[in-house]
Nucleic acid binder design. Structure first.
Lengths: 196, 196
DNA sequence: TTGCATCGACACGGTGCGTGCCGATGCCGG
DNA sequence: CCGGCATCGGCACGCACCGTGTCGATGCAA
């Protein structure tokens, strides 16, 4: 699962970092179709064994690479109104998601996930769940401050907020723009805000 | 785009239908990895040209096959409470989505869509948009009957409803169960229902 | 019956996969 | 300082699938 955390061997760690950089560059230049083990090996001037020694499949490599560029942007530090805070974070991460190389790598992981349940689990547990969780914590904080209805169960609301953004960004050709985020938050606030 | 609607030629149409059946069978048995042009040709006892004559790529074939099994289930005919109607339709289509061969074919299309913008557009225009549209029409009808707030702009609400279900069904390992649908509808109704 | 599109079949070069086997390189312990 | 050894790059293999080309045959339609 983690290519580099297992063993900081001789010159292994440097090579590992190099290979991650190479696949990010390939993602940016040639997209999913260009992201193959052989292409990485060629570009890095490396034998394929050197890659297979670190990752058991292209999917593992992609997941690892994604970890390096998608450091789970959603860190809700602001103490402003919950709506403004959500709006800012959603804008920020959807901007990141549509910026190479994150977008192409994310798409590649999703493609791999469709044919490999293990990748689907990894995608979920290492990325999607984190985003949902951070969002849930933020809106629960807003419940405690009285901004949102204290009785509401916000579990599904958090899933819906991040899920709709992922749906639009990754399954439709539409961009996640201000209007989409505002529309989403309109509904969320209409449902749970204490003050009209 | 449509393999069979263009020309009801000699024995072409029969063959076309045969080939669609074959790829659906492959989807059910071996999943995405087994759905290749060569596998279809082998199974059908057919030259590859016979396939390429009808579809320009495996993605076109998949989209066509999906059309035959996913006849856009969402036909809101009931005149009951909008919430019950939505609930029933969501349950029905998410059950269909998780039933072979629809699920595997849908996953295959999504995988292809990640590397080909044209497939992404086709997936969106031929399937996702339809579901959103039907849902939008149903909730707008509920606006006219007074069940939902007449002032609300339900465009994004419709996207959110179907988007969240697709997100859960296709990008996460979680099933779309009653709890998820009820949670989603709780929020939707809390936001827009006229009667508390 | 003739003409022709479609058919199954086979073969081709190209690419990527995953593995196996080299000889060399450079680090680490003794 | 040197021996031992894991890791290294390079190369080759068999396999699978792609997309195209070229056969001769088959069967519908004029």
């Amino acid at each position: 699962m983690d290519g580099e955390s297992t063993a900081p061997r001789r010159r292994g760690a440097e090579r590992t970092r190099e290979l991650l950089d190479v696949i990010l560059a390939l993602a940016e230049e040639s997209g999913y179709k260009g992201m193959t083990i052989e292409a990485v090996a060629r570009r890095a001037g490396v034998g394929k064994h050197t890659i297979y020694r670190r990752w058991s499949s292209i999917a593992e490599l992609l997941l690892d690479a994604l970890s390096h560029v998608w450091v789970s942007d959603l860190d809700y530090r602001s103490d402003g109104p919950v709506r403004e805070d959500l709006r800012e974070q959603f804008l920020r991460s959807s901007r990141a998601l549509s910026t190479p190389p994150i977008g192409p790598v994310y798409r590649a992981v999703i493609a791999e996930a469709q044919s490999d349940p293990a990748v689907r689990d990894a995608l979920y547990n290492r990325f999607l769940v984190t985003v949902e969780q951070r969002t849930l914590e933020r809106v629960q904080r807003a419940q405690r401050t009285g901004e949102l209805d204290a009785e509401a169960d916000l579990q599904f609301a958090a899933e819906m907020l991040s899920g709709t953004l992922y749906y639009r960004a990754l399954l439709t050709p539409r961009p996640v723009d201000d209007a989409a985020i505002d529309g989403l938050l309109d509904m969320f606030m209409a449902a749970y805000a204490t003050e009209p």
